[in-house]
Design a protein around this nucleic acid. Structure first.
Lengths: 126, 126
DNA sequence: CCCCATTGCCTTGCGGCACAAGGTAGTCGT
DNA sequence: ACGACTACCTTGTGCCGCAAGGCAATGGGG
């Protein structure tokens, strides 16, 4: 119990990921070609430890179908099944640009709303 | 002619709202008691013009059922149907505090991922 | 008085998506 | 051969924002 995130916290994080997880993957691919297992690790490195591969693979498939990314296979250097690497298309790069703008246009106002109030736990003057 | 936002952009914004819309409402209520119609307006003022009342009322009902807020009715000063005002409970205030922390712990890493990449592939969007 | 515009609240059906759990396949050490 | 590990993919579930539409109360005009 000490270690785990609260159930409600986990649930909120799941919801928060929506609409932005695809952009994160796109952004990570933009740096260099990546394969599935890498993403969860990279996201955890960035501070988002919660993303399960059951969310990532379907999303990658969707994005490939949408023409945002392409894939190719390569043998795993560490032994095991071959990896499936993804890289960006021009369409994907454009989408990433739009998405970044959308995120900024969203996170700004939200942050303002959430911090604009007096965050005191004191009594309200109702 | 499109009226400004693209369909895909609207959809992303819908997804982005998840997990944070309840916190925004909570935060707005924390300032002072509010009624339904006010929220869409307040969110638009903050820069989020997209939220429809079909999202807000069910959410308010859910939060009331969860014990985060309470409601009372008061006649409308501008004529028309009576308003239903909401105010925070202690539980709601606690949830708001937790939510703010969750948001910060989420928005930070995401912003870092989305801006950390070197957009070296070709042009720079300066 | 009746009608209707305005204000305000609520419901239904829909669709997208993260997730948990489980399954498949390739490679290696023993 | 067998298990362990790496890696990829699928299914079922539940949440929640949204569009569209409907109900209730108030007040003004014909």
């Amino acid at each position: 119990m000490t270690k785990g995130r609260s159930a409600t916290g986990d649930q909120r994080r799941s919801q928060l990921l929506r609409g932005v997880l695809d952009l994160c993957l796109l952004s990570l691919i933009a740096e260099r070609p990546r394969y599935g297992f890498e993403f969860a690790e990279a996201l955890a490195d960035a501070g988002l430890e919660l993303v399960s591969d059951g969310s990532i693979y379907p999303l990658l498939a969707r994005m490939e179908r949408a023409g945002l990314i392409t894939s190719y296979r390569a043998p795993s250097p560490s032994g095991g099944a071959p990896r499936k690497y993804y890289r960006l298309t021009d369409t994907g790069r454009a989408e990433l640009g739009r998405g970044r703008a959308d995120w900024l246009a969203f996170a700004g106002p939200v942050g303002r709303i959430l911090t604009a109030t007096t965050p005191s736990t004191g009594e309200n003057t109702a």
